[in-house]
């Protein structure tokens, strides 16, 4: 297993910071711009990356990220193109943790063993399969680990203690903690992240939790870090910047840079 998440959390701990993790869909709006976007996110201070493989039927995503999936597929982005893009980023940034967010059919289409092998070869650290719950996850977990990839599971906000304990036991690298029910999407307000939930995951010996869904403003990041989360993941807010600037790539990159800087600044613990 790669130690990149562990090293990142340790380093941030020493600096008294949480992690800010931006999410984008690979290949959105096209391959070349997607690579420029990802490099901008890193340059602006992203601690880790969460990257989505474009899929035809992204049922766990709200309208903004659905549209990103459709844009990428409209440009005929293939899965191998995405792995190649990751490999180029990995070559230049050997330390940054890179997580993949995928849908199950992309993992099994050519055999899950082959999928995790390709992911590992590209330099991916973790894989979260959005439509594979714990119950269906055993086989994916062992295939992931066989290739040194950390399996990630989701902790829902209303989960039973038994579910939370299992999430803590099975997830390596980090735990994806949902701020609320529903699908991805930016919110005006984020439900106060349940400190009790985070504590339960910690008590069960789980990896640090990253809070996701609806993280759109610096105060959301700050609230996550204050509640004891290891950091926060922001997707729809970032993808909206891409969607709003499709005809103005320079403005897009500038706005992304400013946004990530502001979100990263909010991870500093006081």
């Amino acid at each position: 297993m790669s130690q990149r998440y562990a090293s990142m959390f340790t380093a941030l701990q020493q600096k008294n910071q949480g992690a800010f993790v931006p999410f984008v869909t690979l290949g959105d709006p096209d391959l070349a711009q997607s690579e420029a976007i990802i490099r901008t996110l890193i340059d602006a201070g992203a601690d880790a990356l969460e990257l989505g493989l474009p899929f035809s039927d992204p049922v766990a995503d709200g309208p903004v990220i659905q549209a990103a999936n459709i844009r990428a597929l409209k440009h005929h982005v293939r899965i191998q193109d995405c792995f190649d893009l990751i490999a180029r980023v990995r070559a230049d940034f050997p330390e940054i943790p890179i997580g993949l967010l995928v849908y199950c059919n992309l993992v099994v289409a050519n055999g899950s063993d082959s999928f995790y092998q390709r992911a590992a070869a590209a330099g991916v650290d973790s894989v979260l399969v959005a439509d594979v719950p714990l119950r269906e996850g055993k086989r994916f977990m062992s295939d992931a680990k066989a290739h040194g990839i950390a399996p990630i599971f989701i902790a829902p906000p209303d989960a039973s203690e038994a579910t939370l304990k299992q999430v803590a036991e099975y997830s390596e690298g980090y735990i994806y903690l949902l701020s609320r029910a529903g699908v991805t999407g930016a919110n005006d307000t984020v439900n106060a992240p349940a400190e009790a939930l985070i504590q339960t995951l910690k008590d069960a010996g789980g990896a640090p939790a990253l809070l996701g869904f609806g993280i759109a403003r610096p105060e959301h990041v700050q609230a996550a870090v204050r509640a004891g989360a290891g950091g926060a993941i922001s997707g729809s807010a970032i993808v909206s910047i891409i969607a709003n600037n499709l005809d103005a790539p320079d403005t897009m990159l500038k706005e992304l840079h400013t946004f990530v800087q502001g979100m990263k600044a909010a991870t500093i613990r006081d």
Binding site: F55, S56, D57, V59, L73, R78, I79, Y103, C104, N105, L106, V107, V108, A109, N110, D131
Partner: peptide, 20 residues
């Protein structure tokens, strides 16, 4: 065989696993 809409079954899909 593939996974769509919550179950593993047969599926019309391209070589990458995108549903057709």
């Amino acid at each position: 065989p593939g996974v769509l809409h919550g179950c593993r079954s047969f599926l019309m899909q391209d070589p990458d696993g995108q549903v057709e």
